[in-house]
Design a protein around this nucleic acid. Sequence first.
DNA 1: TATAGATTACCCCTTAAGGGGGATATTTGC
DNA 2: GCAAATATCCCCCTTAAGGGGTAATCTATA
Lengths: 197, 197
Amino acid sequence: MDDHTLFLKGMHYLIRDILPQADIDTYKSVRAIMQNKRGFEDLSLIVSDIDLPGEDVFELFIYARKNFPHIPILVISMHKKLAVIRKCKELGIEGYILKNEDGLLPRALQQLLNGDTYFSRSLEIFYRRAVENNETLTEREEDIIKLIAKGYSNQEVADELYISIETVKTHKKNIKVKLEVESTQDIITYTKTNYLM
Amino acid sequence: MDDHTLFLKGMHYLIRDILPQADIDTYKSVRAIMQNKRGFEDLSLIVSDIDLPGEDVFELFIYARKNFPHIPILVISMHKKLAVIRKCKELGIEGYILKNEDGLLPRALQQLLNGDTYFSRSLEIFYRRAVENNETLTEREEDIIKLIAKGYSNQEVADELYISIETVKTHKKNIKVKLEVESTQDIITYTKTNYLM
DNA sequence: TATAGATTACCCCTTAAGGGGGATATTTGC
DNA sequence: GCAAATATCCCCCTTAAGGGGTAATCTATA
């Protein structure tokens, strides 16, 4: 998705309407904001898109968490992606809403500026359901499904991970049981739905 | 992609900045604008996103083309999708730019309001290369690749189209030669890249 | 009418995927 | 230290996919 220019403009205007007195900086890439590290100190809030292919937004989050833990972070995401939500929760991200939930933006901004957190209701429900459903793959299984989703054959996955093709087949069997799916195509769909790739 | 709310706001503000005197209506769905058909008469330009899953934007274009051929249409698209560009050219759409080319928006708007056409340079190059490369599948072949891209097996494709599995296999062989690819995964990637699904 | 393109179908053969077992290390948590 | 979880590997068998052919219709059109 290369529409983050329009996303940026939309967000900028939207936040300006909600917080008319705010001073808003916009950055087009992680690199752009990281080069201006001194600028972090003055920030009272970071709002970030997470659907930026080729950008490691988590690099930004980890840096900000470490050096400026007092700045709350609001993540705006296109889809409900389990692995992404999980990672954000682990990092202690304060806010998370979907792009089509922009009506929730005023509340999210206020909560975070007040020092509270805000995860949209639909996201919380989605996350809880996934966790209850035991959709927790091991690290190795995540390695496998990501390669499968890239279209790798069993042999190619095996070569990539320096393991036997029989091991790959075993992992796939276990993954199918955990995710309650039957075909490799289902694994690919699941991975693309729940992981950033 | 369900971010068209933010896209809409971004576009609205962007066009307002370029054409401050313009009167801009925004619609969130094809249904929304079609219900207000009398409104077409006053329009001097239609600007439409084309990445709206579940929406048949071409329904809008065909209706507008038929009843209000004097209103130029500008399409804004996320990706270069061969089948979409081809369809727009066939319908005589006047303008087409990508979302990350929003810098071209002022020029595109001016050209179309002057009665000219505007396809962005990168799109023209992409389109010409694809046509020269003979990437022209038959209708039946397009049926096949769309089902393949949905994850259908050969047998499932055969059942869906009421043909023999052997015929599906033959079509796939021909498609691979035409597209110069080797695997089914390549066909899926090609289809998702070049068709709206 | 002849020809090209499109659609359909079949045969043979090889390889890959997957279902159903079983087995052995290796790590991790308590 | 020990059980549980995790990761690794193997065998057998069946089915699906795919490569390389050939060919009968049908249709539009030069």
